[in-house]
Design a protein around this nucleic acid. Sequence first.
DNA 1: CTCTTTTAAGGTACC
DNA 2: CTTAAAAGAG
Length: 780
Amino acid sequence: MVATADALAHLNPSQRRAVEHHCGPLLVVAGAGSGKTRALTFRIFQLIHQHRVAPDNILAVTFTNKAAREMRDRIEKLFADQLAQQETGKPLTALPAAEQTQLRSRVYKQQIKPLWIGTFHSLFARILRYDIDKYQDEQGHQWQRNFSIFDESDVQGLVKEIVLKDLNLDEKKFNPRSVRYAMSNAKNLLRSPTEYLNEATTYRERTIAEVYSEYQKRLAANNGLDFDDLILIPTRLFQQNETILGYWHYQFQHILVDEYQDTNRTQYELIRLLATNGETRKEQWNWQRRSLFAVGDADQSIYSFRMADYKILLDFQRDFGDGLPDATTQTMVKLEENYRSRENILQAANHLIAHNTERIDKVLRPTRGEGERIYLYQADSERDEAQFVLGSILKLRERASDLGWGSFAILYRTNAQSRVLEDAFRGRVPYMIVGGLKFYDRKEIKDAIAYLRLLANPADTVSLLRAINTPRRGIGKATIDNLISAAQQLGVPLWEIISDETSVNTIAGRTAKAVNGFAALIKGYQGKVETSDANYLVRAILEDAGYLDDLKSKGTDEAKTRLENIYELFSAVDDFQREYEDTTLAGFLANASLASDLDNLAEGQEAISLMTLHSAKGLEFPIVFLVGLEQGLFPNVRSLDDPQSLEEERRLCYVGITRAQERLFLSQARQRNLWGSTEPAIPSQFLMELPPELIERNGRAVLPRAAGHMATAEPVTQPADDTPGLNWKVGDRVIHNAFGEGEVILLLGSGRKQNLAINFPAAGRKIIDPRVAQLERIEA
DNA sequence: CTCTTTTAAGGTACC
DNA sequence: CTTAAAAGAG
């Protein structure tokens, strides 16, 4: 009890309001570094401990497995500490290690394990393992509970086959990647193939609808689902089946959603259904014993390219809340105190983000000292930039020897930028690329997983085709084509043909022996799936399949690395069995296909982190370098003529700045080598949107105000306010810091929404928001 | 069926 | 420039 009171005493009033919230809807607007995870974990603890909610009545949705793991861990600590106080009168950390472990495992069993904490995908995959057989598909497709989850490359393969082979479309016009992207977007907007077709207006869209429809058919034939389906199908199921929805609505009395600004329409609908039981009349909602608790920050919304929509967060008050103005509302709390960064860093962040238009009014209030100024370096080239980063890190470590390598992070806009940095670092300082190639995306791991998926779900033809000739067994294209065509004519999964010796002998001729041998191998292990542990199965089948010997006999460095990765997979299975107390193959597979990074292995390592700004979200580092602040790189070219995406780039910059605790370094190169040719580079407009007095520049760095065009060096103040604009008219001559001189050729919209179409002789025609872009009118 | 040469594409990325 | 996938040759 003491622990609880103590813990709550350390919260600020807003955090306290969030944590003590019991029933009803609440939106927590949580700025960067404001103790958001703390609010979430304390609240869950509070619900169970104070309000006696059963842990399995709580659903907490996060966006990454890592966030889920962290929350679990922190709640476990809260309970263990509470229990320690209660039983021994001492805090947990004062107990001997063995007792701590024992206490934590008790807490884990009772309070933590039953909690439904996880990502949308893992939680709803779990629900589908119970209920997918009751789902009525619009096109009559069916799935079984042992479905496979297809990852992006499996899916790309399927789409490619449909586009190029089945429908024989022009690869240039219907690039499989962009078709796949369109389909994913459709799913994230809750559109079935039929609905997508009905809304299609162009030939392209109608064709994509056809691919989409065929794609679903192929997925179902494999008893497979893609990631989007893990959200879409439960949503459909809940829409169509009152009983099932009612069951889960009753199950999840308290729903918490983290990173609410990153939800898409389908996820929103799913949450809405669960919270309201599908009841549309607000007055019928029963908040007596339940709650909906959404946490997020619209200023950190950086995933609209994958259909995340921060307007869902902005609409929370209207959708679920009391809809009252910010000052009086009971259904929104803002966490504005920042415990992470120095004041100078926060001022810069606040100043930058104020240039965006559609926001919930919010600032980050500093709680720590001012700190040093932000350092801006103008480099001659990207190589000079890398040298600057390296030099600065070495210098800082000289001055403060207690700064570990892990204190540094280098953030960039595009992955391609990492190479130059790596070249500068290699052999000199320890570094790691965060994000890069995922463990489960590696070829050898995908091969191994294909074998396992085939054991669990024989209908999974995608995995079958991957495994059948890996390692090479002399089963070639011709044989496989014949087998596939037989399966298609009979309308059965390929495995049905391959597993029948007589059929194989008839169809495969000379290679029949090899195919039958493969079939016998798989059959032997399929018989053991129910009775054997996953860690035995994975080792045994790869050994028996000759996969390990194949790698061993190659002897190249590459093969050695691959072999090491396979061994790493073996220990991942062991870890999984220990952590989740689940030895089934199905359990491991579900976890593996949804796992993103085994990179947390590297967590303890002391190394400089290199990553994209997107990967940096949710992380923090004492010292942050934000590199490549150049127009066209960051903000990215594709956002320059679209005010909406430009705002997203600005949010991305905001996310980058707010990762820094102590010091922030910015850099920009005057020319950059991109795809072989050297291009001159213009400083990013974001640099001009920072308060100049907080920036310290190296001799050469000059803020990019072309002399004479910017009359004043005043900080840019609130360009988004209500000033009616500068009365733009057609024919006005302007100068833009990226596009040069141009002429306004059209006014679009009016008032606050007014945009300008401008013809730039140097850059073509662009549509520009004069409140956002750095635009100067040239007096005639 | 496998190895070599050619060609194309390269924004961000969660699960 | 670099890497990956596709086509072409043995």
